[in-house]
Amino acid sequence: MLGIKELSLFFGAARILDRVQLQARPGELCVLMGPNGAGKSTLLRTIAGEYIHYRGSITLNGRELHQIPVAAQARQRAVLGQQLVLQMPFTVMEVAGMGRYAYYTRETSLDKAIVTYALQLLQVYDLKDRSYLTLSGGQQQRVQMARVLSQLLEAPDLDGVDYTGRKMLLLDEPVTGMDILHQQLSLQLATRLSQQGVLVLAVLHDFQLAAAYAQRIFLLKEGRLFTQGDVANVLTSAYIKSCFGVEVSVLHHPDCVYPLVATSPAGALFPSPADKAINVY
């Protein structure tokens, strides 16, 4: 469904993405990982249609991205960005309702039902009349998630509709700042969406969350696709060491179905004060 070939992106002379190739199928929950500055967010935003000056090709269901009108794009993919600054005191209900923009000219009862459903699913329905500006960071994030969900859904029900090949969800660090309960809820929600055929592509930093939820992991480094594959193949100490520069052990525990990534003691990353002193003089 999503095909990326030889994708490069320049900002001025700086090459941010370097001949990235990747394929993702409908119903897959894909996770993008990589060190800071590897181009994860940029890749996600390019797929979201923000940078139309990319080289190479991005195809959605066989159509080149920049040939698809903005409104049609919005009806087949929803995006949850990293930083959202909203200065006007819209209510929670109004903010979530903005997700339906691509569908309505007049607000219908279906739109309302979907927004209500999404707010309930993210457990923020009881805040629906509060001003968005008075919410905590984590609550705001859940409202934004509800907005994005409203944009994706076609019925006020997660299970009823088959979205295979029609919907894509892009999430840029969706759970940063959420408590552990809502992290799990959000990613379980993403899993359920992928079971309905939605292609989910999420940037995550947490190995444990990635190991628990990803069906496929794309590892980026310095603008290139470093490696890809399922959890067992990608989350190995060798790949993590060469991609992130950190010594880790990948542990398997009988109570846990996915591998656990444990870092070595933090001190090992930096030279000891004595070594530093020698380097200076």
Partner: peptide
């Protein structure tokens, strides 16, 4: 309606289908 969505930010408005 487009201006309402625009309050979320330019990129978000674009993602939501605003030209």
């Amino acid at each position: 309606p487009a201006l309402n969505v625009f309050a979320l930010g330019e990129q978000e408005a674009m993602h939501s289908g605003v030209k």
